[in-house]
Structure formats: structure tokens, C-alpha cells
């Protein structure tokens, strides 16, 4: 067993060197495939962070009537926080709202003076609700309206306005765009990955096709299927490892160069920082894909010629 393994590995190494041109061609194709896979990881990360940013900007505000007691508002807040769809609820008291208003209009003396003329704070307390997913705002609003109705007429009259009803079209539109972008990204990723896998498989199959007569001879000499297949599979693994290393190294200068551009375009994410921070994950994905692609392609290709 150990002897066989040793021989398989040694033969794999020797074949790798002796067929250096075929090895080189296979490695180049694998590098391209792994590069596509790696790039898709980056693009997805970028897309996700942009979408997350956009999603984060979507929220709704519930405004309470000016004479709503703070206790009642906080009770509504607690009820909302218990909902599984809700990520967080921020309470903005009347005083806080006034403070915000003043800050916003610090350069607008006319407005500030008009505010001074009033006896009472005209601003309403509000709850800013952030859902875990933008598509859930409809459900949250329905819940809010229903529970308040059940709480009796004095409860129902607490709320003066929910701005969801005005922003509804915009939010729904955004949800649709986000969803279709995610779907499109997934379809594109899957298509590109399948295409590159097929190209790799075909290249390795062609490389092994040149050895089909040898495979026939090995069978006639009495070599077992596993012993014939072993060196080819090991060679495939070597292609994968070398191609993965080349790809990972190539991503370093590339992301370094693209880093500033991605940061200004996508806002939050720098591709180079992402590369450095997620190196272990990227390494596993690319090295794993390389080894699996190389080994599986070789395995299937030899299997085909063993059956002849």
C-alpha cells in the first residue's frame, strides 16, 4: 500500500516534468479558471457590501402625536423590539427631535426665530425602525397598526403618521432591485464557474488523451486500474496546487492596484484590504478548487480511457 503510494507519487512527479509543455498548458488554463473563481469571490464581496450599505439606509419612522405619553411610546418600542423581523428601534424623544432640528437649521435664523415664537415644542416623538430585511417593512407596519387598534381607540390615536406609506413605492422598488441584483449575480457566478470548469476538464482530458495508448499498454502489462490512474490524478493535483499558488500571488499586485479605485467606487470596501483580511478563506477556496478540479478532471478523463 505504502509502496504503491510512493510509486504513484514518484511517477506523477516524473510525468509532470517530462511532459512539461502539457503541464504548462494545463496549469495556464487552471490559472484562468481559478482567477475567474477568485474574481467572483471579490465581486460578490463588493456587491454584498454595497447592497448591505443600501439596505442599511432603508428605515421607517413612526411619528406619535405631540401629547402622546413617553411611557406609551416606549411600550410600543418594546413590543416592536420583540418582533423577529426587527433589527433595532431607536427612540427619538420630542426634546431630541427639537435638538436635531436646531442643529439642522443652525444657519437658518428665520426658521429658528419662528420656532422661538411658539409656546410649546411643536415636534413629535418618533421611533426609527430598522428591519433585518427591507422586504419586511410592510409586515411590521401592519403589525403596528393592528396591535394599536386592538389596544383601543386611545391607543390607535397615539400615532400621527408612519412614513412607510409615503416611501412604500421607493422601498419596494429598492427591494426589487436588490433581489434581482443578487439573483443576477448568482446566475452569473454559477454560469462562469460551470464554463471554466468545463474548459479545465476538457484541457486535462485532451492532455490525457495523448496518453490513451500508454493507458492501454499499462492495462495489458497487468497494472491495476488504481495504479494506472494514480499518477494521473496526482499530476492533476500538482496542476491544481501550482495554479492556485500562481493565482493567489497574482491577486496581490492586482488588488493593490485596484484597491483605491474600488474604495472610491463602492464606498465602503477596499479590495486590497479585503484580500489581506480574508486571505485564509481565499486561499482555501482557490487552493481547494484547484486541487479538486485537477484531481476530478484527471480521474474522469483516465476513467474514460480505461474503459476502452
Amino acid at each position: 500500500m505504502f509502496l504503491t503510494l510512493k510509486r504513484i507519487i514518484r511517477t506523477g512527479f516524473i510525468n509532470f516534468w517530462r511532459n512539461s509543455f502539457v503541464s504548462l498548458a494545463s496549469i495556464i488554463v487552471l490559472v484562468i479558471t481559478l482567477f475567474v473563481i477568485g474574481s467572483l469571490v471579490f465581486v460578490n464581496a463588493m456587491l454584498e457590501s454595497s447592497l448591505a450599505q443600501i439596505k442599511d439606509k432603508v428605515d421607517i419612522n413612526v411619528y406619535f402625536v405631540t401629547d402622546a405619553p413617553e411611557e406609551a411610546v416606549l411600550e410600543v418600542k418594546r413590543a416592536l423590539e420583540d418582533l423577529p423581523e426587527v433589527e433595532r428601534v431607536v427612540y427619538i424623544s420630542r426634546e431630541k427631535a427639537l435638538e436635531n432640528f436646531r442643529a439642522r437649521h443652525a444657519n437658518d435664523q428665520v426658521t429658528l426665530q419662528a420656532l422661538e415664537e411658539l409656546d410649546d415644542n411643536p415636534l413629535r416623538a418618533s421611533l426609527r425602525i430598522k428591519a433585518k430585511d427591507p422586504s419586511q417593512y410592510g409586515a411590521i407596519v401592519t403589525y403596528l397598526e393592528n396591535t394599536l387598534k386592538e389596544g383601543g381607540p386611545d391607543r390607535a390615536s397615539l400615532i400621527s403618521k408612519i412614513n412607510y406609506n409615503e416611501n412604500r413605492a421607493a422601498i419596494e422598488n429598492l427591494v426589487r432591485i436588490i433581489n434581482s441584483t443578487e439573483k443576477f449575480g448568482l446566475v452569473l457566478t454559477v454560469t462562469l464557474i460551470i464554463a471554466s470548469i468545463l474548459i479545465t476538464f476538457n484541457t486535462i482530458r485532451l492532455a490525457i488523451y495523448t496518453a490513451r495508448d500508454e493507458i492501454a499498454v499499462m492495462r495489458l502489462v497487468g497494472a491495476s486500474f488504481a495504479y494506472i490512474r494514480g499518477p494521473f490524478v496526482f499530476e492533476g493535483i500538482m496542476y491544481g496546487v501550482v495554479a492556485a499558488l500562481v493565482t493567489l500571488v497574482a491577486f496581490y499586485p492586482l488588488t493593490l492596484w485596484l484597491g483605491p479605485a474600488t474604495e472610491s467606487f463602492f464606498g465602503s470596501i477596499n479590495i486590497f484590504t479585503y484580500y489581506m483580511q480574508n486571505f485564509t478563506t481565499l486561499f482555501s477556496i482557490i487552493m481547494g478548487s484547484g486541487i479538486i478540479l485537477g484531481a476530478v478532471s484527471s480521474f474522469l478523463a483516465v476513467k474514460k480511457f480505461l474503459r476502452l
Binding site: 510509486r7 510525468n15 517530462r18 511532459n19 495508448d213 500508454e214 492501454a216 499498454v217 499499462m218 492495462r219 495489458l220 502489462v221 497487468g222 497494472a223 491495476s224 495504479y227
Partner: peptide, 30 residues
């Protein structure tokens, strides 16, 4: 069974990427 049968062909059927020594060694390794 194939290990108990030696084969010789008109077109030799040697493994082209192996030396004479390795061709013979391969049959023994197998």
C-alpha cells in the same frame, strides 16, 4: 491474469515517456 501473460506486439507498445529500464520496471511495479 494479465500479469501471468506476457505480450509482444508488432508496434512494440512501449511507454514513450519511460526509459527502457522504466518500461520493464513498470511491469514489475504493476
Amino acid at each position: 491474469y494479465r500479469q501471468r501473460v506476457g505480450t509482444i506486439f508488432q508496434d512494440f507498445r512501449l511507454l514513450p515517456h519511460k526509459t527502457a529500464y522504466e518500461n520493464i520496471a513498470f511491469a514489475m511495479e504493476a
